[in-house]
Each structure stands twice: as C-alpha cells, then as structure tokens.
Amino acid sequence: MTDPHILLTGQSLALAMPRQDMLPEYHRWENDARTILGYGNQWAQSWEVRAAGYERQRGNERFQQFEVVRLEDNTAVGMTILEVNTYVRTAEFVIVLAPEARGKGYAAEASRLTLDWAFHLAALRMVWLKVLEPNRAGIAAYEKAGFRPAGRLRQSGFWLGQPVDELLMDALPENFPVPSAVTATLGT
C-alpha cells in the first residue's frame, strides 16, 4: 500500500488524500454491521458498487473525501466526507471509522480536523450532519468537535430494526473550538 499523503495534522490524527489502494479497507469499514447500524442502513454495499462510486467521486469538487490517519503509525483509521453545496457554501458531513478504531476518541478529533479544513481552507459557511438519536457516542463526539443541535427528522432512520429520529446538527465557523490546526500550520 502507498504511504498516506498528509494534508492537515492534528494532535494524534491527520487528514490525508484518499488512496485507491485502500479502497478494499474503506469497503470493509463501510460494510461493518455497526457502521450500517449507525447510518440507519439495512444492507451492505457490493464491491462493484463501491468501486464504481469511488471512480465517480474522484475529482468531484462537491464530494471532498479525507482519509483519517493515526500519526503514531501512519495507519488509516477512517474517512470523513464533505458533500459540498457550492451554491450556498455549506456541506453535509459524514464519517466512518474502522471497526477496530472505534471508542478511542478518534471521531471527535477527525470531525474537528474536517471542520477546520471546511472553515479555514474551503471557506464554507456551515457544515451539518444527521445522526441517529440512539447514537449517544456519536452525538457526544460531534458536540466536542463543535457541532450543535439544529433539529430533528422524526422517525426517519432505523436503529436495530426500529424507526428512530435523526438529529440534525450543524457547526458554524464561530462554533469551531480553537486552536485551529490550519492557522497553526500557517503561523497566523
């Protein structure tokens, strides 16, 4: 596998360019039962669909992907995505962590690094996400990263086969917890 191309460095994690040779790992993470549960999906995605999706997404300025890399050993531990609406300068945030990387505090730092990129480099006005209400760990990580409650979609998701509410959360540049890895890198 190729070495990660680091874009932005945090305390224990970094954002890097996605790597085509890591696609089998990304596919494994996305089809883990806990990932499917967290997204409210009911089905796994075939390899052919995932590989074709990667090809469509590459170079799409509205679909910015970052590989999340653990700095201590340069291991990929997740992905974050900003689905950008270029007309109004906002984006939907999505994260997936490797099953073995969960429960280590990575979600908060990866989310914070992605918000840092979104606000200080991409000049987005707002970033939002949806999270299933029973996903308390995810909600706590998102709040730590700077997201705030913004609303709810009633009975729009599934958790363990039961309909549940999806919570909407958003972050604005003024909600961003300091310090910024971007401004620290640039010396401002």
Rank of each mutant, 00 (worst) to 15 (best):
E92Q: 08
F93E: 04
V94I: 12
V94L: 12
V96A: 10
L97M: 08
L97E: 04
L97H: 05
P99H: 09
R102V: 13
K104V: 00
K104D: 02
G105F: 06
Y106I: 01
E109R: 07
E109L: 06
S111E: 04
R112C: 02
T114I: 14
L115T: 14
W117Q: 04
W117R: 01
W117D: 02
F119L: 13
L121A: 00
L121R: 03
M126P: 05
M126A: 11
M126H: 13
V127H: 04
V127N: 04
W128L: 03
L132Y: 08
E133W: 01
E133P: 10
P134S: 03
P134D: 05
N135L: 04
N135E: 02
R136N: 11
G138P: 00
I139F: 03
A141W: 01
Y142W: 03
A145G: 03
G146M: 15
F147E: 00
R148P: 01
G151P: 03
R152K: 15
R154K: 12
R154V: 09
Q155W: 04
Q155C: 09
S156D: 13
F158Y: 14
L160N: 13
L160W: 14
G161A: 15
G161H: 15
Q162P: 10
V164I: 07
E166K: 09
L167R: 14
A171D: 08
L172M: 13
